[in-house]
Every structure is written in structure tokens, then in C-alpha cells.
């Protein structure tokens, strides 16, 4: 576990840069992670995806299946990779402050 400063506060992150306390997440933190993930500056489309992930997570305590995300945001996979070069899980979820995906996914 390492510590780093995101959005002006000290945050714990894991080895792959996922924040460890999802409830401390805010927009500034998201933007700081986005810088590291080559997804900066964040456009409206970035936020659309990040907010969608965030809402889903708050409701279900987990990230949505990728197919669901594509369907419900209307952004196709290609577009998602353009916006988030790290991909939906390692890029977008990280910025949205979700925990790293686990299990056989």
C-alpha cells in the first residue's frame, strides 16, 4: 500500500493506483487520477461514464458489467478506450474511485 496526494488530500492507493477509501472520492480526486490515466482534461463524456459508474457503485457496491455500461451510457467500447486508454476497468473505474475488480472477471 502506498500513499499519494490526490485532490489535495493524502490518499491510500494500492499498487495499481486504485484508491482504498471509495467514500473519500470527489471530483478533484477523480481529475488527479485522470491525469495519471491519460484521460485529462475530462470532457462531458468522461464525466458521463464516471458518474454512471459512481452511481451504480453507490447503489450496488460493485462496478456494472461492461456490457451494461456500454448499453446504458450509449458509449461503445471503442469510444471508451479512446476516452480512457486504460479501459473501462483499469481506467474508468479507477477514476470513478471504485475498488479494483476482483474475481474471475
Amino acid at each position: 500500500m502506498a500513499k499519494t496526494t490526490l485532490g489535495g488530500i493524502e490518499m491510500e492507493i494500492d499498487e495499481d493506483g486504485f484508491i482504498q477509501e471509495p467514500d473519500k472520492w470527489n471530483k478533484e480526486i477523480a481529475e488527479d487520477i485522470a491525469k495519471l490515466e491519460s484521460a485529462y482534461p475530462m470532457t462531458e463524456e468522461h464525466w458521463k461514464l464516471v458518474n454512471y459508474l459512481r452511481d451504480y457503485f453507490l447503489k450496488y457496491e460493485i462496478a456494472p458489467p461492461i456490457r451494461m455500461l456500454v448499453k446504458q451510457t450509449g458509449l461503445d467500447l471503442k469510444k471508451i478506450y479512446q476516452l480512457f486508454p486504460g479501459g473501462p476497468a483499469k481506467g474508468a473505474c479507477k477514476i470513478a474511485g471504485l475498488p479494483k475488480p476482483t474475481g474471475c472477471v
Partner: peptide
């Protein structure tokens, strides 16, 4: 929580309807 993916019974319900 029910699954190594973190899926809770509630999330499962949502995914199944999806």
C-alpha cells in the same frame, strides 16, 4: 458478500434483469 467478484445478492438481481 457472496461472491469473489463482489456481486451482492442485490447486484445479482440487477444483473439478471439486465
Amino acid at each position: 458478500v457472496g461472491s469473489s467478484t463482489g456481486i451482492t445478492p442485490k447486484a445479482l438481481g440487477n444483473i439478471i434483469s439486465f
